[in-house]
Computed example of a mutant assay.
Amino acid sequence: MTMPDTVRAFRGLENGDASVRLRAAMAVGTAPHPEFVDKLIERCAVEPEFFVRDMLTWALTRHSAATTVPKLIGELRSERAQARSQALHTLSKVGDRRAWPAITRELLTDADDEVARSAWRTAVVLVPDGEEPELAAVLGTQFGRGERAMRQSLSRALIALGEVILPVLRAAQAGADPRVRTHAIATERLLRDPDATFEFAIEEAKRIVALGANGQEE
């Protein structure tokens, strides 16, 4: 790619019009070159529009993982939550398991909800065979966290790990916190019945917890 083309692409990625930024990201992904990687990652950290961020991620996946993965891992240490979240999201799309050691407990329990959710999704994509129980144990510490969308994301991540999550579910169901117990019961219902909705599973779990609290059955 010539210097004028590169300059034009860089300017496009910073344009005030989201549609221009989108087209620029698409152009960069269509004609990938290593010199674009840093700029794409930089824009991921600050881009306000979801659909543009998604195109930036796509553009990064079009580049060599050998180039992008180390730089994305570096972003996981950023103080900017969006930088961490988008780097995680992109790593999940690249799917290179060399990134697995960078998916730390700190990220899986990050105080920022979007970072944590991205870490959960990325972890279940990258987790090496045999390490699913350890991942499930860390994810289990997040039962009851956040609003419904957050809890649904956690359930989906756990269910993706399969039957290895059962000990974690049982431990959470035996705990004292009714919110945690409800979430764990709902997750097991969804594991057993993939066609059930999260809304239905949560409402059913609430009834089970309420009956238990009244000393009837659980």
Rank of each mutant, 00 (worst) to 15 (best):
E131M: 12
A149P: 05
T67V: 14
C44Y: 04
D110T: 04
I165E: 05
M3V: 15
K71W: 11
G29N: 06
P194Q: 03
M150D: 09
A172D: 00
N15A: 15
V180R: 14
R84P: 09
P194V: 01
P32N: 05
R97V: 01
L88D: 05
R121D: 13
A149T: 11
R105Y: 10
L126K: 09
V20L: 11
A65G: 07
D113Q: 14
M26W: 12
W120K: 04
E131K: 03
P4G: 07
E199R: 05
D177V: 09
L211T: 07
M1V: 14
V28W: 01
L169K: 03
L108Y: 09
Q216F: 13
E131I: 08
E131C: 08
L211Y: 09
S118M: 02
I73A: 06
G130E: 02
E114T: 12
S92G: 11
F50K: 09
D5P: 03
L126Q: 08
R77N: 12
E49V: 09
R170T: 14
G29D: 04
L60A: 03
E204G: 12
E147C: 00
R21S: 01
M150R: 14
A137Q: 05
E199C: 06
V69M: 04
G212T: 03
L88H: 03
A205F: 01
E106Y: 00
R179G: 15
R121Q: 13
V209R: 06
T122M: 01
L60T: 12
V94K: 10
V125F: 04
A174F: 08
T90L: 09
A201F: 08
R189I: 12
R21P: 03
L72A: 02
T30W: 12
R97A: 11
R105F: 00
V52R: 00
P178V: 02
T2Y: 05
A18I: 10
V180Q: 14
H183Y: 01
V209E: 00
R148Y: 14
R84D: 05
A172K: 09
T104C: 10
Q173T: 07
Q216K: 08
A210R: 14
R11S: 11
G29L: 07
L139A: 08
L190T: 06
S155E: 08
R8H: 12
T141H: 08
A184H: 01
R145M: 10
A201W: 08
L135K: 02
